[in-house]
Simulated assay, not measured.
Amino acid sequence: MKKYCLALDLIDDPILIKEYTEWHERVWPEVLENIKLSGVMNMEIYRYKNRLFMIMETSELFSFERKEVIDQESEKVQEWEKIMWKYQKEMPGAKPGEKWVLMDRIFSLADLESH
């Protein structure tokens, strides 16, 4: 199993942030199925003000390239992503059109304790 952490900023508007949170309380089944199909075993999203942090635990099947292909093949996922852009904004330094950006791990207590 591998773990990835990603960050994303929401548009800093309390009404939009509330709506975005509500969308994530009722994620479409097709979106959930695609997440699992891509090799994601668990996904959590945390919010601080308008900044989001996603933690993904993945199987050996997962790659970002594979997930992109699977997502592109699903009309429902594409529809979901289009709706989500209403609430999201690009992170500083992100590539054009890139939403979630991969974070670098700089500390691990478990790694320190295993040496």
Rank of each mutant, 00 (worst) to 15 (best):
M1V: 08
K2A: 07
K3L: 12
K3Q: 09
Y4C: 02
Y4I: 00
L8M: 15
D9W: 00
D9R: 07
D12T: 07
P14E: 02
I15L: 14
I17P: 00
I17L: 02
K18G: 07
K18P: 02
E19S: 07
T21G: 14
E22F: 12
E22T: 15
E22C: 12
W23L: 13
R26I: 09
V27P: 01
W28T: 01
L32G: 09
L32I: 13
E33I: 03
I35T: 12
L37Y: 04
G39F: 05
M41W: 11
N42Q: 12
N42K: 12
M43V: 15
M43Y: 06
E44V: 13
I45G: 08
I45T: 15
I45W: 11
I45M: 14
Y46S: 11
Y46C: 15
Y46Q: 14
R47Q: 05
K49S: 14
K49W: 06
K49L: 07
R51E: 01
F53A: 09
F53N: 08
F53Q: 11
M54W: 04
M54V: 04
E57G: 03
S59Y: 01
S59W: 02
E60A: 14
E60I: 06
F62C: 04
S63I: 05
K67H: 14
E68M: 14
V69E: 15
D71P: 01
E73H: 15
S74W: 02
S74I: 00
K76I: 13
V77L: 10
V77N: 02
Q78I: 00
W80N: 04
M84R: 05
W85Y: 08
K86V: 04
Y87F: 11
Y87G: 00
Y87I: 00
K89E: 05
K89L: 00
E90A: 08
G93N: 05
K95L: 11
P96L: 01
K99Q: 12
K99W: 11
V101A: 01
L102E: 06
L102K: 13
L102W: 02
L102V: 08
M103W: 00
R105D: 06
I106A: 10
F107T: 04
S108M: 01
D111M: 00
L112Y: 13
E113W: 10
S114R: 14
S114K: 10
H115W: 15
H115E: 14
H115F: 15
